[in-house]
Every structure is written in structure tokens, then in C-alpha cells.
Nucleic acid binder design. Structure first.
Lengths: 202, 202, 202, 202
DNA sequence: AATGAATGAGTATTCATTCAT
DNA sequence: GATGAATGAATACTCATTCAT
């Protein structure tokens, strides 16, 4: 409540922001703590007043993502739209927010791929968990649609749901890595939507 | 071909093989040159008789993949199957060969994500190139199908083709990282095939 | 004496006391200024209102010891006991007060042994001086005893005195480091006294 | 057996020797690995080919001391001299070898006193063990002498033995720290011998 | 006077690469 | 050709001290 606390939280955010910039530019291994400090306009030691280690810094970044992600899951669960529309809406939303996280894509890959880091940070498990939950939410919607008769009855809900998740992840990764032009990406969005719609419809 | 040259090439392959094992087990950053030497049953210095650096070693591995990949592109180009079947066949083939490269998935992510390595090795460009070429091949088949009237005429061939590539990459990455059970993955395969078939058909 | 001054001196003492506790628990190198501040229930910066550095803090502790030590020297000089009894009494007193300083023994060793600190603090010299003065006091008493005929005339007073000082220091150090049981240590005291008495007597 | 192994052992010794020099000059904390490397005329990294850490280096030094010390214990145990002479001989021997280890005295104190190091290296325990064993050896000799009637029967053998050990340690420490002149130290030796002889005799 | 947020100098350790044998 | 001993650049982290409030 005291102004000090406000400052502390503000500064913590500033440091995370700076870290995001630097990690996005140089990758995790390629970024030195002093780079991040410089980007934040503070001294190297100051970072350690707010984070205990470089690892904790990356975890803080991922916590931000986790939060956004929980939002998405909640929206899916609470959606009053018909199942098919809810799924398509969620896909569209992911694709539309893509620019917010695109800079972080390479860092995600780097950490995700690195046995050492991924395991010490518990990232692999965390990611696995994310995808499973999103997949389960899609599966529930598919089943609901099948019960309502709006989604094709022969579909294996779980298998398709998990496939959708992998697919969308692939599309997001390629966006972050190869940065297609907005006009082209918007065409891709349309094709994806058409594909998923036709796949699910009766 | 003097016996010396045969030896050289043979040993080169053995080293690449050992590197594959070790990278698959410990990741790229996590593997020391001495680990690879030990796995290959040779001295650390000997690796440098065949490769100039650790980077060159990883490049050699990727060249192996490139070769496999060229095969796939050639098959696609030369395929006498109807376009729709050719595309589905290619997807199926990628999914069926997945185990061959799955161990390397994390390493690919690690290198791909690491700005430092990815750029110094020219990986980003190389990968971009791969995906563009595969995408172009799919696009050509789609157009051909549209001309023949077997593929939906409203589809934007290039956009869908590039989307298919991202999707399939996502599915392969998730396979390598999360290792679904064979029975579940085979259901995913079926759902993917159905989805793509319905998306492309009239 | 304005109340401010009283406060200052009081607080200074409190800080020294806290430092004693913390140094005793964690050693000199192992104690952070913030530990001491916390123990004293004040802010880190406040210590620097009373002491210019961590070194000065340890010097203040040693000044306390010096004062106790001066007392001992004065008692020795002014003692009206026969020389032999004075020496034995002084040894006994040192052994009996051992618990007061025992916690500080490791810190003394740490500082004493560390070239860096020991020299920058002038500890080596200071300690050397202490021991020389105690030794000189013993030597004077031995000579007096020899003149009175109560102490063995063949003894080299200075050499024995200096040896007594080293011996007693060794015993105090071992007490502080290994903490013998009180009952065993009291037996050691008796044996030491017997030894010194027999060594000095005719 | 191969020349490489001989070199390795030789070099290991050279590094220990260099470390001894540097630690003796600057203390443990005050010595940087690069100082030791420079003293040994090798690269910094080379030290790590022979020792895993700075700690391991200091342990190697102490192992040398341990070995010398075991010799002393063995000599004491196997001595065919009368008990009194055996004890006095052992004390004399310790005092005569004093110059060999004197340079290491401050380092011993530094490590011994530093909670952090002493505990992580297991030094405190090791030292305690040394002193207990020497003390036990003296106690056995005292008891033997009492049985033979050459040593005063009222002496508490264990208490005196442990006191002798502390005493001699004090004398050795003061030698290493204050470096008395050889002529004075030799007088101290004589006084110590006389003292111990008179303390033990009937 | 009191505080504690900010600072940055200082250092052990790893490991790709070299090169003498 | 093969080796592995030697190398040193590169970097996260700690903590005494400062100084704005």
C-alpha cells in the first residue's frame, strides 16, 4: 500500500518488459543479465532485487502468458455460442492476438527445445498441461455439438481436438518465425477457418 | 576410391550418428564435444579431423534431413496420383516416418529458437526455404486439382498450402515433444486426413 | 551529555552486540551487513551512521576485548600476591572467563588467518602486541619470583613467559572450537595448573 | 605406467605446490585461481584438469599434511622409548618440523575459523579427529608410564594429554603467525621440554 | 536521523578449439 | 591420422556501500 510497494511492482514489470525485449532480440542464452539491465536503464544488481535468477525472470514472463491463456480457457468454457462457433471463435482469437506474443516465439522454442532449461524450469510439463487443457475444452465442445447434431457424429472428439491444438500451435509458431505479410496471413486465417468448419460440420 | 577415402566417409558418418544420439539425449547446448567423441568411441580431437566445429556437426545432421526432405519433394512432383491423393499421401507419409526424427525434435526447436545459432548456421533461412518449397508443391497440386475440378475452386491455393505446412509441422513437433501413444496418434492421423480431405473436396 | 549523544552511544553498543551475535553464528565472511541490521532491528543503512565499514565493526568488537584484556594486565601488574600465585591466578582467570568469548573464537581465527583482513585491520600487529605485553608481565613476575627464591632460578623468564602465553592461547582456541564438556575442561584446568606450578617451583 | 600418467601426477604436484605458495602469500579467500595458474606457469583452465574446484585444491594440500601426521602417530605408537621420552620426543619433533608448515599456518586458521569453508570441507571434523587421536596416543603413553612408575600417578592421563595437544598447537600457531627468532624459539623449546618433563615426572 | 533501493566490482567455472606428440 | 592435455574467453551472481528520500 505504501508508495514503495507500488514502485516495486512497477519496476518489476519494467524489468520483465525489458527482458522480453532483449530475449526477443537475442534469445535466452544469448542475452546477458547486463543486457537486460541496460535495456531497463538500471544496474545489473538491481535485477536481483526483484528476481533471484535469470530463470526466475523467464518464469515471470511465462506467468504472463499463462494468465492470458487462462482467460482463453475461461472464455471457451463460459461461451454461450453454439459449439462450432465457439471453437472457430477461439481459433480466430488466437490468430488475431498472434502479434502480442510473436516476438517471444523463438524464445519459447529455445527454452522448450533445450532439455536443460526446459526441465529445470518445468516448462515441458507446463506446456503439456496447457495443451491438454485446451484440447479437453475443444473436445467437450465437439461432443456437445455432436449431441446437438451440429457437429459430424463420426468424429473422434479427443483425437480431433488434440490435432486442432497441434495445428494451431504450428501455425502460431510459423507466424512467429517467418512473419508472413498481414494480407497473406489473413488469407491463411480464412482457409483455416473454412477447413475447420468443413471438417466439423455435418 | 582409395580405402582411405572410404574410411573417412565411413568415420564421418559414424560421428554424425554419435552426435545424433547425444544431441537427442542431452540437447545441443547440453552436449559436449567430449560426449560425442566418447559415444563415437574416438578421441575428442578426432572429431575436428572431420568437422571444423560443433556447428558444422549440426549442419551435417541437417543435411541428412535435407536429403530425406528432397526425396519427399521429388515424390510429390513426380507423383502420378490425382492431386488430392498426392497431398493426402504426402501428409500420411510424413506422419508415418515421424518416429525416425522424433528424437531430434527438441534439438530442432532448440536450434531453431536460438537466435544465435539459428542465424550463424543459416538455419532460419534454410527452414524457411524448406517450408516454402513444400508449400509451393502443395499449391501446385491444389491448382491442378482445381483445374481438373476435383478440388474446391474457391480455395486460395497458396494460403491453404502454406497453412497445411504449418499445421503438419505443428503436429510433428507435438509428436516429438509429447509422444502420444501409437493408438491415439493413429486416430489423430485419421482425423487429420478426414479434415484435409473435406477441406479440399468440392 | 545531551540525550542525543546518549542515544548514539547506546545504539552503537546495540549494533556491536548484534554484530557479535551474528558473527558468532555465521562467521565474518558469512555475515552480511543486512543480517546484522536485522539482528539489531534497524535498517541496513543505519549501521553506516555509526560505523564506516564492516571492518570498523569488527574493530569495535576487538576494542571491547582489548578493554577486558587491559583489565587483566592491570590486575597482574598491581597484584599483591606472590609471583607464582599471581601467574597461576591469571591463567585460572583466563580459563574461567573462557565462555564469554568462546563464541567469538572461530571469528578470531578467521580474521587472524586471513591475510587480507588481518593486515588491513592491523589485527596481526595488535594481537602480537597483546601477547607480547602479557608475556612481558609474566616474565616480570617470574624474575621477581626468582629474586625472592620462590621460582626456579634456571628458568629463562622471557622464553617461558612467551611459551605460557602461546600455550594458554592454544587451550582457549581448542576450547572455543571443540567445546569440551565442563567436567573434562575442569580436569584440564587442574592439570594445567599442576603443570605450571611444578614447572615454576624450585 | 605410460609417460602420460607420470606427467599427470607430476603436474598435479606442481599445481599443489603453486597453490601452497599462493595461499601462503595471500590466504585462501585472497587467492584467485588465476594467481595459482600463473604461479604454476599454466593456464587457468588447466587447474581444472587436475582438480574439480578450489576446495578440492585445498583438500589436496591438507591430505599432504594428514600423511605427515599419520607418520607421527605411527612413530608414537611403535616407539620403543620409555613413555616420558616418547612424549618429549614427539613434542620436540613437532617443534623441529615447524618451518615446513609455518607458511600454511594462516591459511589453516582462515579455513578453520571460517564456518562456511570449514564445514563444507569437513575440516572442523577432520581437525577434531586429528587432535583426539594424538591426545589418545599421549594418554596411552602416560598410563603406561604410570604403570611403570616413571610418570606421576596422580595425573589424569586423558585430561593432561588433551591439554598437551592444545598447548603444542598454540605454540605452533604462534610460531607460524609471529615467527620468533630461531634463537628465542630454541629457548622456548627448552623451557617447554623442562616444563613437560617436570609435570610428568614423579 | 533513518532507511533500503540501487549499484557494479569481483571471481569460480565450463567447454569448444588447438596443437604438440 | 589420432589423440587429449592445455587453453582462456565468457558470464551469472553476491554483497558492501552509497545516497535520495
Amino acid at each position: 500500500m505504501s508508495p514503495k510497494i507500488v514502485d516495486k511492482e512497477q519496476k518489476r514489470l519494467e524489468i520483465v518488459e525489458a527482458a522480453l525485449q532483449v530475449f526477443g532480440r537475442k534469445g535466452y542464452q544469448g542475452s546477458r543479465m547486463s543486457d537486460i539491465a541496460q535495456e531497463a536503464g538500471i544496474g545489473k544488481g538491481t535485477i536481483y532485487e526483484y528476481f533471484n535468477s535469470k530463470d526466475e525472470l523467464i518464469l515471470a514472463i511465462f506467468e504472463g502468458l499463462t494468465w492470458e491463456y487462462e482467460q482463453l480457457l475461461n472464455q471457451l468454457a463460459e461461451s454461450s455460442q453454439p459449439p462450432l462457433e465457439a471453437i472457430l471463435g477461439s481459433l480466430t482469437q488466437l490468430l488475431e492476438e498472434v502479434d502480442e506474443y510473436a516476438d517471444l516465439t523463438p524464445v519459447c522454442l529455445e527454452l522448450w527445445g533445450s532439455r536443460l532449461l526446459s526441465e529445470s524450469l518445468g516448462l515441458r510439463e507446463k506446456m503439456s498441461d496447457w495443451f491438454e487443457r485446451l484440447s479437453a475444452a475443444y473436445a467437450r465442445l465437439i461432443v456437445k455439438g455432436q449431441q446437438k447434431g451440429t457437429i459430424h457424429p463420426e468424429i473422434d472428439a479427443k483425437a480431433l481436438a488434440r490435432t486442432l491444438v497441434s495445428m494451431i500451435d504450428g501455425i502460431l509458431l510459423h507466424y512467429g518465425l517467418f512473419r508472413p505479410s498481414p494480407s497473406f496471413f489473413s488469407k491463411q486465417e480464412k482457409e483455416l477457418e473454412r477447413m475447420v468448419r468443413r471438417a466439423l460440420q455435418l
